[in-house]
């Protein structure tokens, strides 16, 4: 080992090239996606108000700003998802490379199941989103898709029990992802602070549970025959 002279050059890399820069991208896009999921969930509650309600809601969405609004929303969502996955993937690969040889024995302490499953959980979510779009937006993965009749589409889809099971699994993955994700977001954006650290943790868990429970209620309600 020779001298550490390293007359260190200032690297001045572009912001997003830094790990923290990409973490921030992940957090912000994560926040957008999270916001969508929340809103989407609230919108889907109209399912319980019967066919007219949800169909009107859908029509409203589609007609919003003569259809433009939806496209804007879609654009934002799509870019967020892409950036989110990009930052997640690139950072994940680097982190894997940072420990070429692992431990023979390892005992976790403060990390959680949620924190350790962010990555694969994310992949499940990706898969879910793709299927979900084919299932309820494009209809090409649907027993009998009727454009415009959202109510029928949802009910028909969930009556196929494997579909419902997959939804439930995906929602659990989403719940875990959010439980850690929202807290992680606070850290990444530098929001967490001694005073409300516990609060942030709690909020994350609360949101996660709400989304999981709420979203799972739909397929369950359909299978149970409460919604038909």
């Amino acid at each position: 080992m020779t001298a550490i002279t390293a007359s260190l050059p200032r690297l001045r890399l572009p912001y997003v090239a830094s790990t923290i820069g990409r973490k921030v991208v992940m957090a912000v896009t994560g926040l957008v996606l999270f916001g969508f999921v929340l809103g989407h969930f609230v919108g889907n509650l109209t399912l319980y108000l019967g066919p007219e309600a949800i169909n009107h809601y859908s029509e409203f969405l589609h007609g919003f700003l003569h259809g433009g609004g939806l496209w804007v929303a879609r654009a934002v969502l799509l870019t967020s998802a892409v950036l989110h996955v990009w930052s997640a993937t690139s950072l994940t690969l680097e982190s894997w490379a940072a420990r070429p040889k692992g431990y023979r024995r390892w005992t976790a302490k403060d990390s959680t199941y949620a924190s350790r499953t962010m990555r694969w959980g994310g992949v499940i979510l990706a898969a879910f989103i793709v299927f979900h779009l084919m299932n309820l937006t494009f209809g090409n993965a649907h027993p009998d898709y009727v454009r415009g009749d959202v109510y029928h589409n949802v009910v028909a889809a969930f009556q196929v029990w494997p579909v419902s099971v997959f939804y439930v699994v995906a929602m659990v993955a989403l719940g875990l992802h959010l439980d850690h994700g929202v807290w992680s977001m606070c850290q990444t954006l530098g929001l967490s602070h001694p005073r409300y650290k516990r609060w942030a943790r709690g909020a994350a868990l609360g949101f996660a549970l709400l989304i999981v429970a709420g979203n799972c209620s739909f397929p369950i309600a359909v299978l149970a025959g409460w919604v038909r």
Binding site: M1, T2, A3, I4, T5, A6, S7, L8
Partner: peptide, 10 residues
């Protein structure tokens, strides 16, 4: 050391 003014030999 960062400025190259000292060479460190740990």
């Amino acid at each position: 050391i960062g400025r190259g003014q000292v060479e460190m030999y740990p």
